[in-house]
């Protein structure tokens, strides 16, 4: 079958792949590029395990075609740690035991990262609404929410000495 050639950027690396027209970005990431960090929980936009950031916006990679990635900037869970240095959110998830089987974890981490990039001081309610599209069937949400709030607190600390950042809107 005729395949589509796509050039895109994934975690800052120029990436080229070919895919079928009806293949999702999630399928491309996992099956063609070997990036299996993004998970498929449902394939229908309900669970958030496939969350990635496209041009700065949090989306479900299961609801986007691979072909749509042309010239976009994509961030996945694979780009979150800096080599062996974990992202502060990843460390806090460990500290708070905010995971069990771990299938939901990449999606939660990517979604939480996109929240903290917009709002460095979210309320618990804002965290819960932001993460409403991420489902966890093992851990429950409390530890996850606490890990996110705790990360936000730590990440704000160095900035405290400077002028406090203006409060940003929470909406995606």
């Amino acid at each position: 079958m005729f395949q589509i050639q796509v050039s895109t950027s994934i975690n800052g690396d120029d990436t080229e792949f070919s895919c079928e027209a009806d293949e999702t970005l999630l399928d491309v990431l996992r099956d063609r590029l070997g990036m299996t960090g993004s998970k498929e929980g449902c394939g229908t936009g309900d669970c958030g395990a496939c969350s990635v950031i496209v041009d700065g916006r949090l989306v479900c990679s299961c609801l986007m075609l691979g072909a749509e990635a042309q010239d976009r900037e994509i961030e996945t869970i694979e780009g979150m740690a800096d080599g062996t240095d974990l992202h502060p959110l990843q460390q806090k998830f460990l500290d708070h035991a905010a995971l069990q089987c771990g299938v939901c974890t990449p999606g939660f981490l990517v979604a939480a990262k996109s929240l903290l990039e917009r709002n460095d001081d979210p309320t618990e309610e804002e965290v819960r609404y932001w993460l409403a599209g991420n489902l966890c069937r093992c851990t429950g949400y409390d530890k996850i929410v606490r890990a996110v709030l705790d990360t936000a607190k730590d990440m704000r600390k160095p900035a405290k000495t400077k002028k406090p950042a203006a409060k940003k809107r929470v909406k995606a």
């Binding site: 936009g45 609801l63 979604a111 609404y129 993460l131 409403a132 909406k171 995606a172």
Partner: peptide, 27 residues
């Protein structure tokens, strides 16, 4: 995110903001 639209037609903007999750609303 469009302040002028949200100010003029808050009902319409809020109804769109009820659709699905953050991920769904992004698309």
């Amino acid at each position: 995110e469009n302040a002028a639209l949200a100010k003029a037609w808050p009902g319409v903007v809020e109804s769109a903001a009820l659709i699905g999750s953050t991920q769904i609303q992004g698309r």
